[in-house]
Design a protein around this nucleic acid. Sequence first.
RNA 1: GGAGGGAUGGCAGAGCGGACGAAUGCGCGGCUCUUGAAAAGCCGUGGGACUCCGGUCCCCGUGGGUUCGAAUCCCACUCCCUCCGCCA
Length: 436
Amino acid sequence: MIDIRLVRDQPDLVKEALGRRGIPSQEVDALAALDADHRSALARQEALRARVKALSRQVGEARKQKEDAAASALAKESRRVGVEERTAAEESDRLANELRARLLVTPNLPADDAPDGGGPEDNVVGRRWWPGIDAGAPEPEPAEHQRVPHWDVGAELGILDMPRGARMSGSMFPLFRGPGARLLRALTALALDRHATAWEEIRPPTMVLTETITSTGHLPKFADEAYHVERDDLWLIPTAEVPLASVHRGEVLDEAALPVQLTAVTGCFRREAGAAGRDTRGLLRVHEFDKVELFAFATPVQSAAVHADMLARAESLLQTLELPYRVLDLCTGDLGAWAKRTFDLEVYAPGSDRWLEVSSVSWVGDYQARRANIRYRPADGGGNQLVHTLNGSALAWPRIWAALVEWGRQSDGSVRLPEALAPWFGPSPAIGPRVV
RNA sequence: GGAGGGAUGGCAGAGCGGACGAAUGCGCGGCUCUUGAAAAGCCGUGGGACUCCGGUCCCCGUGGGUUCGAAUCCCACUCCCUCCGCCA
């Protein structure tokens, strides 16, 4: 949630910031009006409540003095005011709920330095990287044998079995087998081992309460995107960001403990409602996938450095895996609802012939912390402050799998893997045709 | 799934219808004494909303109810503990 006080005190600033995301200024006016109504209703209710409390105290005193007639007169008056108070409370509750519902679907204010734009076409392409770039090597040009999409390579080598995945779970549920499954396991182990020296490794639940998935911003706005187990009212997480944000939900952290940096691998579940027919082949878009996530709670001052570290970690994994990539600075029109600034990493996949988003690294500011009530005690005293949260993927594996298989394909049809995977695939790591 | 017990401030723990936002201890901060430290003593120490900056209100797991008045009584739910059952 954004800070309602900011809407109150500096509505023009909020209008300008949300306007960059295409939110009309009337939305901000509506919030401000609701807030004003709510506060005056609350003041009315509290004045009545104070009156009831004062009268009740007098009833007690009168009883003690054995002034029964006075006591019952006071009690009668208090009862009358109590009825009024209840009405006033209903009105103020109604307004509070309405205001909260609106705030829950209001997106975050973008960072000042996030580029302006209306949609994905306006994202700013930043630096690019490919193997050997530091030594002056030219950007790699895919050979003919690398122009085979991973779903064909996977089927050829028997390492990706989409039809059988569909048999048990429906379309867009991949089934990896043999070295294909091992490749996923290797990627997860590689990433976690690298992060876990500085970031605490967590293995959270993958089903969470409504409150947990609401505090990140995924509910109520994106309810259609998540799988809901209605019988138990639990949600399958779309990303580890959801449970990790709740690790400290409702807590007041010591500033000395910040930044808290967590990493986790989880399954991620997405209904992909409304994405029918778009990039649905192979692993481009699937309902269930594994992802290693980085998540941090930081002070506002620390957050820029943490954001940079996250991005560096994701990039360093791509470099280790020798995959050409580019960094995108998301424009205001493409920014996720709760992000202030986001960098996406895209890997080029020569067989599918497209750039695949494999990481998204976001600075969220206090937007989630306000929903989840996560604060810190400043070391130099003063009142508790909301923390900043940050999240980033490092990395999402199916698309990495696809890019590795496409780039690695040799003219004989086998797949060469990067040297970093030697611990799982032996020296000169590769996946050949199945012998048996 | 069944039976019982419990949930109060950073922690432990008292209070069980009337000035209770809440005893006490620990912890933490400040001061006195001391060359310094320890010990001792004294003082202070939860969060939040609104504010005409005088204050007002809310929070004792959560949500309802009873009452002039609820941490305290009643109901429902959640979580924790103990025992029984089932189980990877």
